[in-house]
C-alpha cells in the first residue's frame, strides 16, 4: 500500500498529489501538521524523515523522502516510467528538478515567510543549517561504523557526495562552524582525497591519502 505523508499547504506535497492523480495510483494520505503544529519535528516522523522534510512516500516499507525519487517511483509503479521519465529527456528533467528547487528556495520561501510569519533571519537560517548538519553528521558516523565512506551506499563516491560537498565545505563562510560535526569533517577529508579533486576559494586541500587504501579512506 502506498502512503503519502502530506501537508496540504506544501507545494512539494502538492506535486506528489498531482502525479498520484494523473497516474491514478491507489494511495492513502496521512496528514502531517507542519504549521502551526510542527508535527514534522516529532520523533515518530523524524524516524521516517531524518531532516523532517515533507513529502514522504511509504510503499510497503520502502520509504522515500526526496521529491525526485518519489516522483520517479510513482511513475514506475504506475507503469508509466517511459512516459513520465523518458530516458531521452532525463537531463532536461533533472534541470527542471533543479529549477524547481531554486524556486522553492526563493518563491516558496517568500510565500512561507508571508503566510506563516516565520522570519528567515540569519540566525534562523544558521540554526536550520545546524539541524541539517546534525543529521548529516549522524548519518556519516553510523556509515563509518558500518565500514562505509560515502553518503550513499557503495564503495565508490556517488553524485550524492558531489552534490552535498560544496554547501558543507563552504558553510563556515556562512558563520556555521563545523566544529560539532567531527564525522562530517572526516568525510570532507575523504572527498578532498578523491583523485582529480579541485579546490576553490575557501576550500582547502586535505593531506595526502594513504597509498594502500582507495581514496585514503578509513
Amino acid at each position: 500500500m502506498i502512503i503519502l505523508y502530506d501537508f496540504e499547504l506544501s507545494a512539494e506535497c502538492y506535486a506528489v498529489r498531482l502525479l498520484l492523480g494523473f497516474t491514478g495510483l491507489a494511495h492513502e494520505i496521512r496528514p502531517v501538521d507542519m504549521f502551526p503544529g510542527r508535527e514534522q519535528d516529532e520523533a515518530w516522523f523524524r524516524a521516517l524523515s531524518p531532516d523532517g522534510t515533507l513529502p514522504v512516500l511509504d510503499d510497503d516499507g520502502l520509504v522515500l523522502t526526496a521529491l525526485p525519487a518519489i516522483l520517479a517511483h510513482i511513475a514506475a509503479r504506475s507503469g508509466g516510467l517511459g512516459r513520465w521519465w523518458p530516458a531521452a529527456a532525463r537531463d532536461e528533467i533533472a534541470r527542471w528538478f533543479a529549477h524547481a528547487e531554486s524556486l522553492a528556495d526563493s518563491a516558496l520561501r517568500a510565500r512561507w515567510i508571508i503566510t506563516t510569519g516565520d522570519g528567515h533571519s540569519l540566525p534562523v537560517l544558521q540554526a536550520r543549517a545546524h539541524a541539517l548538519l546534525r543529521t548529516l553528521d549522524r548519518h556519516v558516523w553510523f556509515a563509518e561504523k558500518s565500514g562505509a565512506d560515502w553518503l550513499a551506499a557503495g564503495a565508490h563516491p556517488s553524485l550524492a557526495d558531489v552534490a552535498v560537498f560544496p554547501a558543507v565545505a563552504l558553510c563556515e563562510e556562512g558563520g556555521i562552524s563545523r566544529q560539532d560535526y567531527p564525522a562530517i569533517r572526516r568525510w570532507l577529508d575523504r572527498v578532498r582525497r578523491i583523485p582529480g579533486f579541485h579546490v576553490m576559494s575557501g576550500v582547502f586541500p586535505a593531506g595526502p591519502a594513504r597509498a594502500d587504501v582507495p581514496f585514503g579512506s578509513q
Binding site: 563509518e144 563545523r178 566544529q179 567531527p182 569533517r185 572526516r186 577529508d189 586535505a206 593531506g207 595526502p208 591519502a209 594513504r210 585514503g216 578509513q218
Partner: peptide, 21 residues
Amino acid sequence: IATSDDLPFRHVYHGQLLGQE
C-alpha cells in the same frame, strides 16, 4: 575531548576545551 576514532590517518580534529580551541 575526542574519540580515538576521531583521529584517523592524516586528519586534523577541531577540538575545544573550556573555551580553548
